[in-house]
Simulated scan of single mutants.
Amino acid sequence: MKNKVLLCLLPLWLLSTGCSTFTEQTPPKPVAKVVKPKSPQAPGANLQKPQPKPYVAKKPVPGSGTATYAIDDGKTDFKVEPSLPAFRAEPLTPPLDPLPEVPSAGAVPAAPALPAFAVEEARVPTGTPPAVLALLTEADRNRVAGNLDAAVVSTERALRIDSRNPTLTYKLAQLRIKQNKPQLAEELAGKAALLAGSDLDLKRKSWLLIAEARRMQQNYQGAKEAKAKSESFFGR
């Protein structure tokens, strides 16, 4: 009896066990897919871009009525012709007269030029040695002929004979003025003025010759002073 009951309960037990097993099974969990990153490219690697293919002009199809031309790359040299009309060159107008220069506040105005001073002849004093007179005559002859160097040589020889004669010194200063040697002439005329002593007329002529020598050296202020000095002597 008991065996029959067990046999009847066994199928029911098996059926309940199978249902519980079926219901407890869970669906499989999703598995994440791992994607491997791409390996980085080495630095400095030159990437070569694909070069565009050169454009090739298509040949026109005969009878199609259209033509295909190559595209200009812009590098063709071309010359742009001027479109403006040519102008005729007009003569330049004459320049205007320059404006007079205005001296600045601190500038010293140049002294005006002076006219030449007259150089007078000096008479030979009495009692002059005959040899000196002969040399002076030769010097005057060479001076008139234009041979100033020979006249200077004769006068210097006369001075070696009579070195204290102021008239000979003055005559040599005259020759230096004619030779355009104003510095030597000024020195000789100053010496003649000192040797003249009481001969006021020779002093006046000597200072007048000094004024001319200074004028030739463009020492206009000194020339005026020498001229005023010569006018202070009244022996004539």
Rank of each mutant, 00 (worst) to 15 (best):
P40M: 05
D77K: 14
L114G: 07
Y170M: 00
F78E: 07
N165K: 04
A105W: 11
T93N: 12
P166K: 02
F233W: 05
R236T: 13
T66M: 08
L114D: 03
A228Q: 13
A67I: 08
I161W: 04
L136E: 12
A226V: 02
A45K: 13
P182T: 00
G235W: 02
P100Q: 07
G146F: 04
P28L: 05
L159A: 00
C8N: 08
T21N: 10
R157H: 12
L209D: 02
Y170R: 00
S206T: 05
Q218Y: 13
L96D: 11
Y55T: 09
V80K: 15
Y170A: 03
A193L: 12
M216F: 13
K79N: 04
E187R: 08
L194C: 00
P37T: 02
G44H: 05
P60G: 08
P54V: 01
G197C: 00
L133S: 08
D77R: 14
L133I: 07
R215T: 01
A193D: 04
K58V: 08
P50V: 10
I210N: 03
L114C: 00
E121W: 09
K53W: 07
E186K: 04
E121A: 03
L136C: 02
E231G: 05
T169S: 09
P40W: 02
A228S: 11
L96K: 12
V5T: 11
A226Y: 00
G74V: 06
C19A: 13
C19Y: 10
C8Y: 09
P129A: 12
A196M: 00
L208C: 03
L135W: 02
P94N: 12
P11H: 03
P125N: 04
L10D: 01
M216I: 05
A139P: 08
P27Q: 08
P37R: 05
F87D: 15
K33M: 13
T26E: 15
A211H: 01
Y69F: 09
P43E: 14
I71A: 14
G146W: 13
K79P: 12
A105C: 12
L195R: 06
Y220H: 08
V5A: 14
A131W: 07
V152S: 06
S198P: 14
S104I: 08
Q217L: 14
P11R: 00
N147M: 05
P94H: 01
L6M: 12
L200V: 04
V119N: 14
S64L: 09
K58Q: 12
A45S: 15
N219F: 01
S154G: 04
R123H: 10
K205C: 01
L195S: 00
